[in-house]
């Protein structure tokens, strides 16, 4: 199940977003303080984290920076009523956010942004999974190769099959 974390100090924003995201079938967790959101990071793995920018105890960029260390795979988005240049630069350079959305928001834009963030998240996970598979397969191959090498050094010729011109398998001591 895809889990989404929403952080905003304004409870009414959180319920509006909850309504908006409900039909999408994602598991939506809402937090109205940075502290409780940090607690959420310890319990759940999120695909997407959407945070407000200006909050009482810590700003959204600081929170997302922390979230990035905790859950580097989670996609980070800012939803802010502050559209000034410096806050955007901070969000992009420090928290490496995927999108910077402004309040008031367009419902479609929010859903589409989260959806494409989820797609990327899935892609990242799939990519890692495939790489792990390749790695285990490579390790298996290498072990087999080494075994062959060992056999060959102990019993030279054992890893090869000798055939005559008809294609029949020859069994015997070829060195002799």
């Amino acid at each position: 199940m895809i889990k989404i974390q929403l952080v905003d100090d304004e409870p009414n924003i959180l319920s509006a977003l909850r309504r908006l995201l409900k039909p999408q079938g994602w598991e939506v967790h809402t937090y109205n303080t940075v502290e409780s959101a940090l607690g959420g990071l310890l319990e759940h793995d999120y695909a997407v984290i959407v945070s407000d920018y200006q909050m009482p105890s810590a700003d959204g960029v600081t929170y997302l920076q922390f979230a990035k260390q905790r859950q580097p795979d989670a996609m980070r988005l800012v939803l802010s009523a502050h559209g000034d240049r410096s806050s955007m630069i901070k969000a992009i350079n420090q928290a490496e956010v995927y999108r910077f959305l402004s309040k008031p928001w367009d419902d479609y834009e929010v859903v589409a942004s989260i959806q494409s963030a989820i797609d990327l998240y899935r892609l990242k996970l799939e990519n890692r999974q495939l790489r792990e598979e390749v790695d285990t397969q490579k390790a298996m191959l290498r072990a087999r190769e080494q075994e062959l090498l060992r056999l060959e050094t102990e019993n030279p010729g054992i890893t090869r099959v000798h055939r005559d011109t008809d294609g029949s398998v020859l069994i015997g001591d070829h060195d002799g």
Partner: peptide, 12 residues
């Protein structure tokens, strides 16, 4: 912008 944001979304 905060209240306008959620009121607008709620209307939808």
């Amino acid at each position: 912008n905060n209240p306008v944001g959620y009121v607008y979304s709620n209307l939808q």
